[in-house]
């Protein structure tokens, strides 16, 4: 069943001024319930603009966005409800922290939902647990946390609303490899617990290959490809034409194959690569 569907979606910034700029053009996509979609594209290709339509923050210049087959703009009163169901984590979300304690900041969303105090603290604890923030940190001021902790607190602020669809705009930008893996694991953990649909905007092909099932490729405001990870990353040439790439490990395996080494195509993650190599050595070992 489709959760989010767009129909001839167009968005133009600063419409009617000399600065007008078409950010997305003619986007028709259909996102199924439970999908884990990586959204990739060159900088300025319209990824952030696109995802801000899914929770009604941006109103289409023309075209329609449907959430559970209902036009998101049909009833302005329902817009707030939609924002609780489609949770959007912005790029560098740590800059939106404001409350006295981390706990109350994470509770901001649930409080806006009008939940009871018990329910709020329950959800704050759950969200904090998913992102690995200790109870001791919850009592601190958000401005006293480290950069990575702030990022996780901001993520928890959206997870605490228990959105059906979780949209993340470059959640790992500016983090070290460890912090990056941690955030990705936490997102996967949330999805496992709730069965949510996840959309992940990322510049890292490795991240997308590791966690996503489908990939949406944006180029110059248009959808270039929208398919499974395997299918998209097997079109390396086309990707590099629009300034993108396949994961490094895939590139290595493609080169190995070109040199006549008997490895399979479609190796996108380190785990798969290791397995593939072990299998290869075992086979070669038997032959020798």
């Amino acid at each position: 069943m489709s959760v989010i569907r767009t129909e001839n979606l167009n968005y133009v910034y600063s419409q009617g001024t000399p600065f007008k700029k078409a950010a997305i053009t003619d986007v028709n996509i259909n996102i199924e319930k439970g999908d884990f979609i990586g959204i990739i594209g060159h900088t300025g290709s319209g990824k952030s603009t696109l995802v801000q339509h899914f929770n009604g923050l941006l109103k289409p210049t023309s075209g329609k966005v449907y959430f559970n087959e209902e036009d998101v703009l049909s009833d302005p009163k329902k817009l707030r409800e939609l924002r609780f169901k489609v949770g959007l984590v912005f790029q560098y979300p740590e800059y939106q922290l404001f409350d006295e304690t981390v706990e109350s900041d994470i509770g901001f969303g649930p409080k806006n939902m009008g939940l009871s105090d018990d329910e709020i603290s329950q959800r704050v604890l759950e969200a904090a647990k998913i992102v690995g923030l200790s109870e001791e940190l919850l009592k601190k001021s958000p401005f006293d946390l480290s950069g990575g902790e702030k990022r996780r607190a901001a993520l928890a602020g959206v997870l605490a609303m228990k959105p059906e669809v979780l949209v993340l705009d470059e959640p790992t930008a500016g983090l070290d490899p460890y912090g990056r893996d941690m955030i990705l694991d936490q997102i996967c953990e949330y999805r496992k617990q709730t069965g949510a649909t996840v959309l992940l905007v990322s510049h890292s092909m490795e991240d997308v290959a590791r966690v996503a099932e489908k990939v949406l490729v944006m180029n110059g405001g248009r959808v270039e490809m929208f398919d499974t990870v395997e299918k998209v990353f097997s079109r390396g040439d086309e990707l590099s034409k629009i300034g993108l790439n396949v994961p490094h490990i895939t590139q290595i395996f493609m080169k190995l194959k070109a040199k006549g080494v008997k490895v399979s195509e479609g190796v996108f993650t380190m785990d798969k690569a290791v397995n593939e190599l072990i299998a290869l050595f075992e086979k070669e070992g038997k032959n020798a």
């Binding site: 929770n55 707030r80 979300p93 901001f108």
Partner: peptide
């Protein structure tokens, strides 16, 4: 946008509520 995404409501409510709603920004 980020606070609206968490359901911040800046338009409705009493004056006091509106003033409070500005703080997260």
């Amino acid at each position: 946008s980020a606070q609206k995404a968490r359901g911040a409501d800046m338009e409705t409510g009493s004056l006091m509520q509106k003033i409070k709603a500005v703080l997260p920004i």
